[in-house]
Design a protein around this nucleic acid. Structure first.
Length: 257
DNA sequence: ATGCATGAGTT
DNA sequence: ACTCATGCATA
């Protein structure tokens, strides 16, 4: 069956469910599909949250958090500069702490000095708990790594910076005094359930990327259709899209600097 | 270093 | 059902 051009106002999601098929450009329609509800919070206000081992919580992060969104456009316009000044006067921070370049510079210094101290990312993560900063516990190696490589959201970077800065200062102070504490916790764990990580094969991944390019937020039904077509669990596909969106918002590429 | 996953809090 | 911060598992 063909699809009359005049009827393309409401294509079934499945009609365009083949962004990378053999045909060059027949069924490919990178246009909207208009779900029943189209709310777009592409960039909502960032209220930080925390959970299990998370030491950070946006509104309780030591050193304040920005009441901003994760990845807002830079303020390099006269009007925006004025707004920034107004904000500063209003009690909100100017934005020296939120300046992407400052964060980038700090991240680099941090990594450099951390290595100089001969400390691994994992070590830093654990050491944070010993720092006893209110509301700050340990962090994983992953997080430290992501901080150093700026692969975190803008807000996350801002929240973590003061904490890591505190650790760095303490660490360098102790290094100077050649301190050593006779502590030996060694509370080694007991075998727990291992979490499994499903691996999406390259071909499937390429398809997902193609779908993402045309529709970053597919509806539940489309996700189901994609999942079936690629023979993946619906949840795996849903999570993949979520992670892909997060990835797209990371500092590295966020149009800030 | 990075992919896939969880969970709290929102929308 | 989503975003965001974060982490386990793995390349």
């Amino acid at each position: 069956m063909g699809r009359p051009i005049s009827a393309m106002s409401h294509m079934d999601g499945l009609e365009m469910l083949d962004p990378i098929s053999t045909s060059s450009m027949t069924t490919l329609t990178p246009m909207s599909e208009t779900p029943s509800h189209m709310h777009s919070y592409g960039m909502n206000h960032v209220m930080n949250h925390h959970h299990h081992g998370g030491p950070l919580s946006g509104h309780s992060a030591p050193g304040h958090h920005p009441g901003h969104h994760g990845g807002h456009p830079g303020a390099h316009h006269p009007a925006m500069a004025a707004a920034a000044a107004a904000a500063a006067v209003a009690g909100l921070h100017p934005d020296a702490d939120t300046d992407p370049r400052e964060l980038e510079a700090f991240a680099e210094r941090f990594k450099q000095r951390r290595i100089k101290l001969g400390v691994t990312q994992a070590d830093v993560g654990k050491a944070l708990a010993n720092l006893k900063l209110p509301g700050v516990g340990a962090l994983s190696q992953s997080t430290i790594c992501r901080f150093e490589s700026l692969t975190l959201s803008h807000n996350n970077m801002i929240a973590l910076k003061p904490i890591l800065q505190a650790w760095l200062e303490e660490a360098e102070a102790q290094a100077k005094n050649k301190r050593r504490d006779p502590d030996a916790p060694s509370v080694l764990p007991a075998g727990e359930k291992k979490r499994k990580r499903t691996s999406i094969a390259a071909p499937e991944k390429r398809s997902l990327e193609a779908y993402f390019a045309v529709q970053p937020r597919p509806s539940g039904e489309k996700i189901a259709a994609i999942a079936e077509k690629l023979d993946l669990k619906k949840n795996v596909v849903r999570v993949w899209f979520c992670n892909q969106r997060q990835k797209q918002k990371r500092m590295k590429f966020a149009a800030q600097h």
